[in-house]
Amino acid sequence: MNEDTEFSQPEPWVDAPLQAIKGRGAVTNLAGRFETQLIETVDDGWASYRDDTCINPALTTSVTAELAKTILSRNQSPDLPFSVSLNPYRGCEHGCVYCFARPSHAYLGLSPGLDFETRLYAKTNAPELLRRELAHRLYQPSPIALGINTDAYQPVERALCITRQCLEVLHECRHPVGIITKSALIERDLDLLKPMADSNLLAAAITITTLDHSIARSLEPRAASPTRRLQTIEKLAQAGIPVLVSVAPVIPFITEQELEKVMQAAASAGATAAGYTVLRLPWEVNPLFQQWLQTHFPDRSQRVMNRIRDMRGGKDYDANFATRMRGEGLWADMIRQRFGRALKRYGLNKSGRFVQLDCSQFRRPQQIPATRSSTGQLDIFG
């Protein structure tokens, strides 16, 4: 072999560039915090020779039937307006990249990223569990928050109707309930919601993060459009249902500038109250959101994170009950003041507290179903 022969050193592999996936919020399947192995996607140089469908294959949604052991969750968090919640599903196809519930998928050995919005679990025995819990002799009624961890009206509900069956139980038992959603599917259940609202047993909150459809498509890819959510507020209000608009989360330099516009549009549609939270980045939500920023808003990603840290005492997130929903410091105070002025300008929150639901009408269910035994989990959709 010629001594003058030159050997070229192979170039080191580099991380594959982040790419948006149509119809999905997260851009990766980030490993959960309990994983013992970490898999990284790298660019081996072949991507340029392959078409886009090979680089980003279409992700399908699967739904696994699950027999839950209990259905009512209780909390003692001082910054939450409810102490009891009900979630018919785990995971959420809406794919909101900022969703605080994403880290819960790590407990299933799944990713809080793309797995959270594509690998869903449906608690098919939720209605019968709810009936049994309400029938317990020691049960004391307290307003139930429906769809807090994941949206109870996400797309799969259209076929499974678990949320509707739970509402039928609550309607029968005259039990107070509050619903929060980003979906127009809630309109399907007006036949149950209206009589409950007429008896002061129900209130609804519609979350509107932005009025910009292009931002919404990447931020909340499979939720109803902002315009459609405003129409939902109008239909609920026309039915006599108290409606609160939740402007959440407020994201600096992304949605922050729309705070007043969202409140004005919601008030015009019929909302009578409003609330807001600033962006929260617990656990895996932090890197997932930063990946989203780098993908969709690389020009301002550092500026956004700097402002978030200004409102979190220099950290990406602070779980302190006193400040986690609203933040602290100069910028958080400015948002709070803007929100307060907008409340007065658009006639929202006139009565102070949104709605005081009535627990005195509660009556225990008469028929108690037998408990189904678990035979394992079964994929009901491919």
Rank of each mutant, 00 (worst) to 15 (best):
D198L: 07
D198C: 03
D198G: 06
D198A: 12
S199A: 15
S199C: 12
N200Q: 05
N200I: 01
N200L: 00
N200R: 02
L201R: 01
L201W: 01
L201F: 01
L202P: 03
L202H: 00
L202K: 00
L202M: 04
A203Q: 09
A203N: 10
A204H: 02
A204W: 01
A204I: 03
A205C: 12
A205V: 04
A205Y: 03
I206Y: 03
I206D: 01
I206V: 12
I206W: 01
T207E: 09
T207G: 08
T207P: 05
I208T: 12
I208S: 09
T209W: 03
T210V: 08
T210L: 08
T210I: 11
L211F: 05
L211W: 05
L211K: 06
L211H: 10
L211E: 07
D212E: 13
D212N: 15
D212R: 14
D212I: 04
H213G: 12
S214Y: 09
S214L: 15
S214K: 15
I215M: 11
I215Q: 11
I215V: 14
I215T: 11
A216L: 08
A216I: 11
A216T: 09
R217G: 09
S218L: 13
S218R: 14
S218N: 15
S218I: 13
L219N: 07
L219V: 08
L219W: 04
E220L: 10
E220S: 11
E220A: 07
E220C: 09
E220Q: 10
E220I: 06
P221D: 12
P221R: 13
P221I: 13
R222V: 12
R222E: 12
A224G: 06
A224S: 14
A224R: 07
A224E: 07
S225L: 11
S225R: 13
S225C: 07
S225W: 07
P226C: 05
T227C: 08
T227E: 14
T227Q: 15
R228T: 12
R228Q: 12
R229W: 01
R229Q: 03
R229M: 04
L230I: 13
L230T: 08
Q231G: 05
Q231L: 08
T232A: 00
T232V: 03
T232M: 00
I233V: 08
I233H: 02
I233M: 02
I233W: 00
E234N: 10
E234K: 10
E234L: 02
E234T: 07
K235M: 02
K235C: 02
K235H: 04
K235T: 04
L236A: 02
A237D: 05
A237I: 02
A237P: 05
